[in-house]
Design a protein around this nucleic acid. Structure first.
Length: 442
RNA sequence: CGGAGUGUAGCGCAGCCUGGUAGCGCACCUGAUUUGGGAUCAGGGGGUCGCAGGUUCAAGUCCUGCCACUCCGACCA
């Protein structure tokens, strides 16, 4: 992408309403535009990051055996009357009437709808386990939206729903999602710690929140320092092996970890002082097992090997991609701006033309730009006539991990400069070597 | 929902107390000189002062009502 043809409305000054760093930086980097209380447009740069975050989520959901679908945002009240939640959910749910005066709602979550889909097709235990997920906009009329996309009213959510014959099956499904989540957050450069959680209005009896540690986190969390060194399963983990998956979950649930509301002072004081980690955290994922909570009232049954009908045992698993973006920024930034992990960076590399209009510099930049494009690497080419300082500031603000600096001095010597956003480290390299390297990565 | 606060150009702000031709910085447009960490000079464009009503010869400024947004508390991905 050529910056001169891109839409990147960056701000030099901090917008007054933005109090926390991720909100400030997302506005300053031209990623989002607020459209109302708790609702945002994703501008081109933000959309790129969102897509990369969602791609990682998809890859890990798919790897764990979940199947992607896409359910509508608008739901019929009838479904919710079946589960009994139409009255229970309260003011957080946006209720709407259509022209026929029928009661509709903008989905805050999809347990009812997915259960309706399940029950109308699946009749046999032989079709289990089944896990259906989608990534769709949700609306929750939060009492208090705040912190930009961290807590919006309209937000994107990946929600997965598992169906199993019995508790053992459901527990295995829960474990698979648990491990998928560990991998998902790790791939985004985050240290996520699973913490036993309150099940809240969704209900159920087994639940973990995935919390990332960040100074500006919303909740107080307590955990054992061991979490920082626990190994995250690699991509060769076998999701078909319930024993292996259960072992990983055991490792990740054995050390003490709890959010404020679940905190156990007695257990905490039993841990050696130096082993305790008390910090702020941001919830980026939440998984629940809730058994027959919906299958029973909604009559979602399958026939088991015993010939009898069984209400399916269910679980649901959420990740907020829009919140994740903010969480990544909270965890990775400095005074100059965002520091994207490569896996979610809107562009992997930016070519900074120090002297746009200079034939030599332009030529080298075009050559590099074409090479990166050919290699399938997401590249931003700053071909604007801004001054050098401004280009550096922009590249740092929007957090591009690799910066290739092309200036008249280096070009004369057949050299360009490479700068890493994360460390600030710079090195000079021969243009020919860099071109060869790009060619090899293709 | 309770408490606090803010609405003036795309962004950040001053002006309001004490009513009298709407201003500053950044951004934007034109030209010149510049060009390795957010240049300088000159010229220029852009405003229903959140909305409605009221007081007044005159309202950004005073009064009333409403709306929007932000922050602090109880809920959530």
């Amino acid at each position: 992408m050529r910056l001169s043809r891109y839409f990147l409305p960056i701000l030099k000054e901090n917008p007054r309403e933005a109090e926390i760093v991720s909100h400030r930086l997302m506005l300053r980097a031209g990623m989002i535009r607020q459209q109302g209380q708790g609702s945002f447009t994703m501008l081109p740069l933000g959309k790129r990051v969102l897509d990369k975050v969602c791609r990682i989520i998809r890859e890990e959901q798919d790897r764990a055996g979940a199947l992607e679908i896409l359910m509508p945002t608008i739901q019929s009240a009838e479904l919710w009357k079946e589960s009994g939640r139409y009255n229970d959910y309260g003011k957080e749910m946006l209720r709407i009437k259509d022209r026929q005066e029928r009661d509709l709602l903008y989905g805050p979550t999809n347990e009812e709808m997915v259960t309706e889909i399940f029950r109308s097709y699946v009749k046999s235990y032989k079709d289990l386990p089944l896990n259906l997920y989608h990534i769709q906009w949700k609306f929750r009329d939060e009492v208090r939206p705040r912190f930009g996309v961290m807590r919006g009213r309209e937000f994107l959510m990946k929600d997965a729903y598992s169906f199993d014959l019995d508790f053992d099956g459901a527990k295995a499904a829960y474990n698979r999602m648990f491990v998928a989540y560990l991998r998902t957050f790790t791939r985004m450069g985050l240290k996520a710690i699973p913490m036993r959680a309150d099940t809240g209005p969704i209900g159920g009896d087994l639940s973990h929140e995935f919390i990332i540690l960040a100074e500006t986190g919303e909740s107080q969390v307590f955990c054992h320092r061991d979490f920082l060194d626990l190994a995250v399963p690699g991509e060769n983990v076998d999701f078909g092996d319930d024993g292996e998956i259960a072992g990983i979950v055991k490792d990740w649930t054995t050390p003490y970890a709890a959010t404020d509301e679940m905190h156990d002072e007695a257990a905490w004081s039993g841990i050696a002082e130096g082993e305790r980690l008390s910090a702020r955290g941001i919830e980026v994922g939440h998984i629940f097992h809730f058994g027959e909570k919906y299958s029973k009232p909604m009559n979602a049954k399958v026939q088991g090997p015993d010939g009898k009908e069984h209400f399916v045992s269910m679980g649901s698993y959420g990740i907020g991609p829009t919140r994740l973006i903010a969480a990544i920024i909270e965890a990775s930034h400095d005074e100059a701006g965002i520091i994207w992990p490569e896996s979610v960076a809107p562009f992997e590399v930016v070519i900074i033309n120090m002297k746009a209009g200079d034939a030599e510099c332009d030529g080298v930049c075009e050559q590099l730009y074409a090479a990166y494009e050919a290699a399938g690497i997401d590249v931003l080419y700053d071909d604007t006539d801004q001054r050098a300082g401004g280009k550096f500031a922009t590249a740092d603000l929007i957090g591009i991990p690799n910066q290739v600096i092309v200036g008249p001095r280096g070009v004369a010597a057949g050299e360009v400069e490479l700068k890493r956003r994360a460390t600030g480290a710079r090195e000079t390299t021969k243009l020919a070597d860099l071109l060869a390297f790009i060619g090899k990565t293709a």
